[in-house]
Design a protein around this nucleic acid. Sequence first.
RNA 1: GGCGGCAUAGCCAAGUGGUAAGGCAGGGGCCUGCAAAGCCUUUAUCCCCAGUUCGAAUCUGGGUGCCGCCUCCA
Length: 385
Amino acid sequence: MTLTIYNTLTRSKEIFEPLEPGKVRMYCCGITAYDYCHLGHGRTCIVWDVVRRYLEWRGYQVKYVQNFTDIDDKILKRASAEGTSMAEVSERFIAAYFEDMERLNVRPADSYPRATQTLDGIKRLVYELEQKGYAYASQGDVYYSVGNFADYGKLSGKKLEDLQAGASGRVEVENPESQKKQDPFDFALWKGAKPGEPAWESSWGAGRPGWHIECSAMVREHLGETIDFHMGGGDLIFPHHENEIAQSEAVTGKPLANYWLHNGMVMVEGEKMSKSLGNFVTIRDALKQYNPMAVRLFVLQAQYRKPLDFTSEALVAATNGWKTLKEGLLFGYGRAINNKWEDNSPSPNPRTPPTPLGGGPPPQPIPWRNNFGKRWMRILTLLGV
RNA sequence: GGCGGCAUAGCCAAGUGGUAAGGCAGGGGCCUGCAAAGCCUUUAUCCCCAGUUCGAAUCUGGGUGCCGCCUCCA
């Protein structure tokens, strides 16, 4: 059976062909650790968790990497507001991330690289970009020159001319930061240190990495020059993922990822969730009111690329749905064990049993042998029960 | 304004040429001393217009609407 997926890069559904037979390398752009995770982060993590589980269930050996951005202006801003350090803030919210995701039954990735742990790789990439003529130093910063990368815009379907024309009215000419750039769409690879901010030594002087470069460096370090899946929220397509492609492919000359997958955004009561609208819902706040598995079911009932409206009515519906489903699953679980069903079908491959619902007894091998068992396993797999 | 995506009942969603699955919510009913649970039953012509076809939610063309991105964002 072939697996077909929508690839943002080609704007079409394609048949999945792994780079290496039987193996999948996937990278998901994670969070910037400056606040508690909201429902949008929750959706992203749940959706890609299911893809990962599904691929494993299909028998692929999956390596799943997700990053934490722990160097960033917003983290610094929060640290200075609290009178603490950047590390203190990011540590706290990374810990909170793991708490939230565990409650949502999101399985941990295989590794969680952080920007602060990837400085060597980042500096090497910036250096190589500079050597190849894609980057230039400017007053302590280093910028990527988008005009030198012929494929710039291929992921988001934007042309540099259109971008420049569309932005002509809003590029802040007075901003001293933008005056360091040769082109308004050039972006920072390395930012020179400001007084009192954390900084790392480099050949361009003390400073810190820009946002986009860390992902290019981490993918290269943990998964290789080309990977199968690169995922993230749809709002990352431009500029973040576009810039990652520009950085990585300029250096390696190879595709960064064969398939680019993006999930839809979360709305709240019909409006886009944003801090300015004040309808920003954190995962932990939502879980005070709703069962985590009901939230998970709600997210998974919707098509992953569509916008998802978080309404109390929809959550009540999902809560009821989960209640019914859970009873059925518990019934099936007991029945499978009582009947001593065994897995003797050739495919898909046997797998480790799911974690029991809400704690419960230790997992036992899940036996199944007929269509009922297969379907049931599929439901368990997809829900991540 | 530019680029991209989506459009089936209150919400989610199956369905890829033959007269619209299912779930949740809502209405009606059964059961019960009451309640809960459970059970039964009920709710759409598929955004609009034109075309292709014996026949279209499913194909073609044109509209409309919604969403995202174009600035930090999952």
